[in-house]
Design a protein around this nucleic acid. Structure first.
Lengths: 179, 179
DNA sequence: CACTCATGCGTACGATCGTACATAACCACC
DNA sequence: GGTGGTTATGTACGATCGTACGCATGAGTG
């Protein structure tokens, strides 16, 4: 029984995202999260106003973290060519094992957003970030096409339908960009 | 109380897919399906060996239906140019309201497949179909790139992030194909 | 028409869920 | 060292879930 536990709220959110990645939104429960985060069940309804509040908070944090990661890939780019390389690297990272977790969580969020406007607000902000990041380097239409391409490659990577060779990605990106 | 009801099994599967589209895999329940399909609860465990069996059956049928729809788009194509047009039309249909339902169900299936090998078998067969359909018209690498592009556009269409103009899709397809 | 048995169904059980709330634990201040 | 008020927690309730199973049912057979 420990009463002093700063950052407990944060830990709950963190654990929630981990569990979503493992068992999906469908599989998470107050009890499961509480056990994993090593907090009493009562903390769930104390820190969050019900399950929906918790999920929204978790996904909002996730989107923020993901947007930052997206932006980080382009942060170092100085030339057009480097921006293209950044897109390829982004796809590679999304397909990597480390990125797979984020990928899964992202699709869970998509599913919620497809049905609930409250979550669509989160995905909307996020997509605005990724779009604007792309538009710093490419014309609007090309940015939209690249966005779709990245998303598609990431999805196929997450389902490990095929090893997804680097050259195939790079070639597709170059064709869409038009160089 | 009606005893003679041929095709009841099929109706259950159909309703299951409808409900998955509406409330997601997480939201479906034996009782909900039974009520919607107008069958007694007992029919659920009578016709299917538990929830997992039902879901696998439903998704297998869905994949079959979806593969057929995919193939149908290319069935009429005679020239390379018509194949390109078919790809664009495919994306358009996937983003249309009618296709949105199928889209949602597909992503639900993806989520299951990402975690459970049993469902990966279903997605695997399906992707093999779409891939081979594309490879009838395009080189393997281009087929993979197109596949990703289609998937990405479909996803963005499902989240109605933007109206997704037809020209943007067509132009991207042409660039990837290389004409 | 009677009998029989595979087919199909109503119901109940145990588990798990989200949530609310009385109450315990702590801290600051007198 | 008491004490009031804030913070946090254990527990219990009602609902819902998947599943199993005894029994009703009606078609087929003689």
């Amino acid at each position: 029984m420990r009463r002093h536990d700063p950052g407990r709220r944060d830990r709950i959110v963190e654990v929630t995202l981990d569990l979503i990645a493992e068992v999906g939104v469908a599989g998470v429960s107050h009890r499961g999260i509480a056990h994993r985060a090593d907090v009493p069940l009562g903390s769930m309804t104390y820190h969050f106003d019900g399950m929906d509040d918790l999920l929204r908070t978790a996904f909002a944090r996730f989107a923020e973290h993901f947007s930052a990661s997206y932006a980080a890939h382009f942060a170092e780019a100085r030339t057009h060519e480097e921006a293209i390389a950044a897109v390829v690297a982004l796809v590679r990272d999304l397909c990597a094992d480390a990125g797979a977790r984020d990928n899964i969580v992202a699709y869970e969020l998509y599913m919620l957003a497809a049905r609930d406007p409250a979550y669509r607000e989160i995905t909307g902000r996020w997509m605005a970030v990724s779009r604007s990041e792309l538009e710093r380097w490419f014309p609007p239409d090309v940015a939209r096409q690249l966005d779709a391409l990245i998303e598609g490659f990431a999805l196929h990577g997450a389902l490990d339908v095929a090893p997804l060779e680097r050259d195939v990605v790079a070639s597709a990106v170059r064709k869409v960009v038009g160089v």
